[in-house]
Design a protein around this nucleic acid. Structure first.
Length: 243
DNA sequence: AAAATCCGCAACCGCCGCAGG
DNA sequence: GCCTGCGGCGGTTGCGGATTT
């Protein structure tokens, strides 16, 4: 009561973010930290809804985000976590440092779902399709069994196999050559939802402190992609032409 | 080379739980 | 205890690029 609505719908910009908007948001958060999202657009000089700012930051601008496709080990982890947690993408994302729920959700819907179907596994129940067809009669039935499928089932049925990926590479399809797999600590299987990295990273003003907390290199180094992005955008409201 | 189709991803929408007034 | 807004979450959409015809 007495509170203003999140955003007044009118005069709120929608659609893709420009480099200038990104820059405003980044510099604001770097200077002020993550505070009240509702106030961010006004204080940062953005014609966006606070919700949109939060989404843009968490899904795209955060300096600790990994970019690019999920690795084999991450994908396997997502599959196994999905079998346990269902579509709780934020919980799943919490176990994958540098990945967002949106990214995982997208990857699931575009890649993993199809992959599992191809392998004859129901992506909802994680049961073989011919076994779970009673629960999802419309799903195509594929009787073929291949190595990767049996490995997947093994892993899903024996989560202990994932406790230490580097020790179980012979029985799961985790690629041990993939450095990322070595960074997935066994504690992910412990009860509770401890993140793999400290998520209390709503740093205030000191970027070095922030980076030291999450173990990242300097901000500038981490945001080279953003400079590239600005190069692509050529011009923007700020006159940030490629230079 | 052009048109049609597919695919991936960023962003929006609506709902829910929690906390403040 | 109730009402309302905020933040967060999951589902969905739409656009742009890639691939196929």
């Amino acid at each position: 009561m007495g509170r203003q609505p999140c955003c007044d719908k009118l005069g709120v910009k929608k659609g893709p973010w420009t480099a200038a908007e990104d820059k405003k948001l980044i510099s604001f958060i770097l200077n002020n930290g993550q505070c009240c999202w509702r106030a961010v657009p006004k204080l940062a000089g953005l014609s966006r809804c606070g919700k949109s700012c939060r989404l843009r930051w968490t899904n795209y601008l955060r300096p600790d985000l990994k970019r690019g496709l999920l690795t084999e080990s991450e994908e396997q982890l997502v599959i196994d976590l999905h079998a346990r947690l269902g579509n709780r993408w934020s919980k799943i994302a919490a176990k994958l440092p540098g990945r967002t729920d949106n990214e995982i959700k997208n990857h699931w819907n575009t890649h993993i779902k199809k992959k599992l179907l191809k392998m004859g596994i129901d992506p909802v129940t994680h049961e073989p399709l011919n076994k779970s067809c009673s629960s999802s009669p419309s799903a195509p039935v594929e009787t073929k069994t291949d190595d990767s499928r049996s490995q997947l089932i093994q892993v899903n049925e024996r989560p202990d196999m994932l406790q230490s990926p580097s020790e179980n590479n012979s029985s799961s399809n985790i690629n041990v050559d993939d450095q990322d797999s070595l960074h997935l600590p066994s504690c992910i299987w412990e009860e509770g939802d401890k993140p793999l990295i400290d998520e209390s990273w709503s740093f205030t003003s000191n970027q070095e402190d922030f980076n030291s907390v999450i173990g990242l290199p300097a901000w500038e180094e981490n945001c080279e992609w953003l400079l590239d992005y600005q190069d692509f955008s050529i011009t923007d409201d700020f006159g940030l032409n490629s230079s």
